[in-house]
């Protein structure tokens, strides 16, 4: 692969639109990133044009895929990095950050994971 592949030229031309922004989030709900939060997260991520990735140390998951999000097995207390690349990256990052902060609407005594 060369540096002048059509993709890299197009990406360079897109300029600011391809900016990647990232932030740290913490899994605060006690049950961790299980099936329901992963569903909520993927639904939110799919609302945005930007590519969205969640990174847990060396592991990377597509934020728009529940299956991939579940492979992170992120327990309560886990710190993750959210990366967004695209024209609406900043807004997407804010929306996803809020979802984590809201504990995915889970209460600590929730019995139905």
């Amino acid at each position: 692969m060369t540096a002048e592949s059509p993709e890299s030229v197009r990406d360079a031309a897109a300029g600011l639109q391809q900016e990647t922004v990232s932030r740290e989030v913490v899994v605060v709900n006690a049950a961790g990133l299980h099936a329901r939060p992963a569903d909520l997260l993927a639904r939110e991520a799919r609302k945005w044009q930007s590519r969205i990735a969640l990174v847990n140390e060396s592991q990377r998951a597509d934020g728009k895929s529940i299956l991939e999000l579940l492979t992170l097995a992120a327990e309560a207390g886990t710190r993750l990095v959210v990366e967004a690349t695209g024209p609406d990256a900043r807004e997407a990052l804010d929306a996803i950050g809020s979802l984590f902060e809201s504990r995915f609407n889970e209460h600590e005594n929730h019995q139905d994971s």
Binding site: A30, A31, G32, L33, H34, A35, L70, T71, L72, A73, A74, E75, A76, S113
Partner: peptide
């Protein structure tokens, strides 16, 4: 909850 997460991770 950790065991449940690890089972989902494996699946």
């Amino acid at each position: 909850p950790g065991d449940h997460l690890r089972a989902l991770e494996n699946i």
